[in-house]
Computed example of a mutant assay.
Amino acid sequence: MFAPTFNYTSGIPGLELAELISYSVQFVFAMLRVGSFILAAPFFAARYINLQVRIMMAVALTIPVITQVEMPPVDVLVSMKAVPMILSEIALGLAAGLVLSIIFGTAAVAGDRIAATAGLGFAAQIDPASGTSVPVISQLFSLFMLATFVSLDGHLLALRMMIESYNYIPPGGPLLTGPMLEAGKEAARDMFTYSVQLMMPVVSILLLVNVLIGVITRSAPQMNIFSFGFPMTLTMTVVLLFVGAPVLGKANEWVMGSALDLLDHMLQEMANGRR
């Protein structure tokens, strides 16, 4: 009897199984940064986007990276030396995505404060992006921000920044936490600053309306504040949001530009610190 012979090849012409495994290890390592960014960035991290779709996006975005950027040797990636490298790549992708998410929280904060001032804080529903219960106005503001982000190709610009970051921040290098911490603090500061600027026109007018309602009910105590004040406040809120929609769109565009500029500044500072 003849013993069966096995051909331990990868099935790809000219590529051995050992080489295929080496390429796979380097491919997975290259996918960590952009995959972490997709898991944390606005729009990509929404719950209505399936995990399988995110994985496919990360794989597709890693293909041009693995063909143009030199990865660490496989001997290093399969040893304990790869642990800090892996953590650095994941931290970089998460930090980049969280910087955008924090600034994009401007819309949610502004909408929440407007809803509280208008007495619509009880009108809440489940946000499909985060899975939490938020006021309807806050959700409308967040959806408007995401619509602006996508319609102006902001998501493509963010992905391009992450892919280009492989050129000046080589994978496997030391992690610089200073620029990431500074970017996080600046993003939190900008979130509250921009949210005040977005909500102040509507909140100021609603405050004057509430003062007017208080004067009227004080002058005529027989008028019920709930049957008179709440419909008036609600109507004024709807009118203000309708009239201010074009201005809100311009403000969302400006906030989106500031978020992308901060992301680019963080990546540039990390690149300069490694030189």
Rank of each mutant, 00 (worst) to 15 (best):
V74Y: 03
V74N: 07
V74C: 09
V74W: 04
D75W: 10
V76L: 03
L77N: 09
V78Y: 08
V78W: 03
M80F: 07
A82W: 15
A82Q: 10
A82K: 02
V83P: 12
V83T: 13
V83Q: 06
P84A: 06
P84N: 04
P84L: 03
M85E: 13
I86K: 13
S88W: 09
E89L: 05
I90M: 07
A91I: 02
L92T: 09
L94V: 13
L94K: 05
L94P: 07
A96N: 11
L98T: 07
L98D: 12
V99D: 12
S101D: 11
I102F: 02
I102N: 11
I102T: 08
I103L: 06
I103E: 01
G105P: 01
A107C: 06
A108C: 06
A108W: 11
A108G: 06
A108H: 02
A108R: 13
A110F: 06
G111W: 03
G111K: 02
G111D: 06
D112V: 04
R113W: 04
R113N: 11
R113L: 04
I114A: 00
A115V: 03
A115L: 12
A115F: 08
A116M: 15
A116P: 02
G119A: 00
G119E: 03
G119I: 14
L120A: 15
G121V: 10
A123D: 00
A124P: 02
I126H: 15
I126E: 14
D127S: 05
D127T: 04
P128M: 10
P128N: 01
A129W: 12
A129F: 05
A129K: 12
A129D: 11
A129S: 12
